[in-house]
Design a protein around this nucleic acid. Structure first.
Lengths: 241, 241
DNA sequence: CCTACCGATCGGTAGG
DNA sequence: CCTACCGATCGGTAGG
């Protein structure tokens, strides 16, 4: 009978590039060193736990996932996650907060980079929409779906912390939507427009299939066409129906 | 110590009008009679269970609701729901299937009634959208939200049964959306338009608050304006910004 | 539909 | 981070 606690590294929960080099040789030149006395992996195991929790919470839901599931996924035993997180709910909050932080950073950077070249509000919206789809549906993106669909399991204190992050995320969109509204291209109160648009985008988590159907670019085009009646700045051809 | 199984009728789970008369007097003229030997309440208790399950599944989720919760809500003891349903999952399926049947019937009837008077595609879409909001957010509407947000807990066989109902529901919308697309008022592939629009509508379950903010009519107006750029057939005034 | 119950599983903890 | 464990709760059932 094999030892049930054989350490299993989950490659997919690590940033690309961190794996690969290590593991090819026994020497592990600069990778994680052999564990020595009084030396711990510090935050690394914590990061692995958060990634595993995100994947499981998304697939099975918060209530449907046991802390034992999460422990097994990173090669720990049942009680060990509580060495890193004081409760299952704290793990959920870590998933959500990290997902929001990452999304905010990403959208802010994309917008700032684009504003140098194309100060057109529709083009900026398209960037936000396209990135939003990537955050929701791209590879390794379990954090935001968990944030969106497991909010019921969050405590009141956690909820108020997350509300601040959600406000920051919305604040990135606000000036773009207001500009479009001023131009008459968004024919709808801005606040309701945002809620309805976020719904249209977020719902894709329920039906999107990466292996068939539209690509994320096509999704973004369709959403833009639906919301403000134009897919791109310069449509390659015009179809007459 | 009171008997823990004092029968508690849950008034809110009954159609309006069924309660009220009964309960005011001890004679219960025509209401549910005293239970006599070999006489059961037949389907009534079953209906109560489905309603209580819908409410609890919506508020706490399928995994977060125990069959004991449901039993207590209708004044039963822990094992009794399994006299009516063979499993917790069967109760979930009953909630979803009943919700879909009801929504399909409602939308079909509304569309048929309207087609006599106003064969305008935009007006028909507005009816579908308004009714959809009512099904999602109106009083006593827990069934469809459960259908939408607890699909993860459904078995493969149940999923295929529900997929047929979902297809029927989509079929009600299809001709309206196709007409709008032909008229150039829906600038987006019809299939993607349906998915994005349903998302925009369904997401309202997450943020709508009946006690503040927009009414269901205002929501429908905003959605119509966002999707096809017109809120009503004859806008009362035009705002220039 | 109640009573009484079962085996399984769960979040979490003490102590090392 | 493992070992060993606890009390609570869960879906479900037999037998009436």
């Amino acid at each position: 009978m094999d030892a049930p606690h054989a350490r299993k590294r989950s490659a997919e929960s690590l940033p690309a590039g961190l794996e690969g080099a290590a593991g090819l040789t026994d020497k592990r030149p600069r990778g994680r060193p052999r564990k020595t006395v009084a030396e711990r992996d510090d935050g690394n195991r914590r990061v692995e736990l958060v990634h595993a929790a995100a994947r499981l919470f998304r697939r099975k839901g918060f209530d449907g996932t046991s802390t034992r599931d999460i422990a097994t996924a990173v090669g720990m035993h049942s009680g060990s996650p509580f060495y890193h997180f004081k409760s299952k709910g704290a793990l959920l909050h870590a998933v959500m907060a990290e997902g929001m932080q990452s999304a905010i950073t990403r959208q802010t950077a994309a917008l700032q980079a684009a504003e140098h070249a194309a100060p057109d509000a529709a083009a900026l919206l398209r960037i936000l929409v396209r990135n939003h789809f990537d955050v929701l549906l791209g590879p390794g993106s379990d954090f935001i779906p968990v944030m969106l669909y497991e909010s019921r399991s969050v405590t009141a204190k956690q909820r108020s912390l997350l509300a601040k992050l959600q406000g920051d995320y919305e604040a990135v969109w606000a000036p773009v939507l207001e500009a479009l509204h001023r131009q008459g291209r968004l024919r709808c109160p801005v606040k309701l427009a945002r809620l309805l648009m976020f719904g249209a985008l977020n719902w894709s988590v329920q039906w999107f299939d990466a292996k068939k159907g539209a690509s994320l670019d096509e999704l973004a085009d369709a959403a833009m066409a639906l919301f403000i009646g134009e897919a791109k700045a310069a449509p390659p051809r015009r179809t007459r129906s």
